[in-house]
Simulated scan of single mutants.
Amino acid sequence: MKDINEIVASLRVHGAVESYPRLQGLQYFRRLNDFIENTCNENIEEINDRNNSRNKEGEITPQRLLELNEGKKYKSFQNFIRPSLLITLCSFIEDVFTNRINSDKELKKKFNNLPKEKIGCINKANNFLVNNGFVELNNIEGITYVYEMYLIRNRFVHNKGEATKKIKEMQKKYDFTIEKNKILLGEKFIENYIAHLEKFAVEVAKIIYVKKSRFSKFQKDKSYIGDIK
């Protein structure tokens, strides 16, 4: 059963999606993550219970070895799927920023003419929007969290999950461990990031997108057509 905080979060996200359709993905991430984590954990628990009931403590049998191996498969799947969800979440919040730019011809032209920089796309898009009138973005708390998620995401995308000194220092802040110099995301890592985005993305949308009217299909400002498709 959902607790009151989850219910409130769900209602808040639903209302935000109604007003800012670009946030549509927000209403699925939590359910997807819960389904994957709960399914894996339930199977691992079932295997452990079955294994304990069939075998005396410390006794090794072929059946027990098979079941232990099956449990490891679910653990391996969790270690595989969590980085995939992290990459998806980073793509989502990046799209929230860049779609606002791409849906406006003038902004898109300016953005595309910017010199190439050794800076992540999310950083570049945020800085660009601030410099082009959306200065209220500077007042939103939580952008550092998003930037640091990108640093971790980039290690999986480009470096097979290998940790750096900076990543290792971030262990104090986020739910992950380092084993044999590889990043292993913890069970709460994705859940925590989703909870952050459920608030952060909404605050960003309030600043850079026009609120969609519930009583009209059309927006007067044609530059926002990318948000109402």
Rank of each mutant, 00 (worst) to 15 (best):
residue 61 T to M: 06
residue 73 K to T: 11
residue 150 Y to H: 07
residue 146 V to R: 01
residue 213 S to M: 01
residue 122 I to V: 06
residue 55 N to C: 01
residue 155 R to Y: 06
residue 186 G to A: 10
residue 187 E to I: 12
residue 216 S to M: 07
residue 138 N to G: 07
residue 116 K to F: 08
residue 98 T to Q: 04
residue 103 S to H: 00
residue 28 Y to C: 08
residue 125 A to K: 05
residue 56 K to E: 13
residue 87 I to V: 15
residue 114 L to Q: 15
residue 39 T to C: 08
residue 25 G to Y: 02
residue 45 E to I: 11
residue 188 K to D: 12
residue 53 S to V: 06
residue 29 F to V: 09
residue 199 K to N: 11
residue 188 K to M: 11
residue 225 I to C: 06
residue 158 H to S: 09
residue 221 D to H: 03
residue 119 I to E: 15
residue 99 N to W: 01
residue 174 Y to C: 08
residue 153 R to I: 07
residue 27 Q to L: 06
residue 160 K to D: 13
residue 216 S to N: 14
residue 229 K to N: 09
residue 108 K to T: 00
residue 50 R to K: 14
residue 95 D to L: 09
residue 15 G to S: 10
residue 113 N to W: 00
residue 34 D to V: 05
residue 79 N to D: 14
residue 131 N to I: 02
residue 208 I to L: 05
residue 187 E to G: 03
residue 135 V to W: 06
residue 169 E to D: 13
residue 80 F to C: 08
residue 174 Y to F: 14
residue 161 G to E: 00
residue 93 I to G: 00
residue 28 Y to W: 12
residue 112 N to F: 05
residue 115 P to I: 07
residue 10 S to K: 15
residue 104 D to C: 09
residue 184 L to Y: 08
residue 150 Y to L: 13
residue 93 I to F: 06
residue 51 N to A: 14
residue 38 N to G: 10
residue 55 N to Y: 01
residue 144 T to C: 03
residue 92 F to W: 08
residue 33 N to F: 12
residue 186 G to H: 05
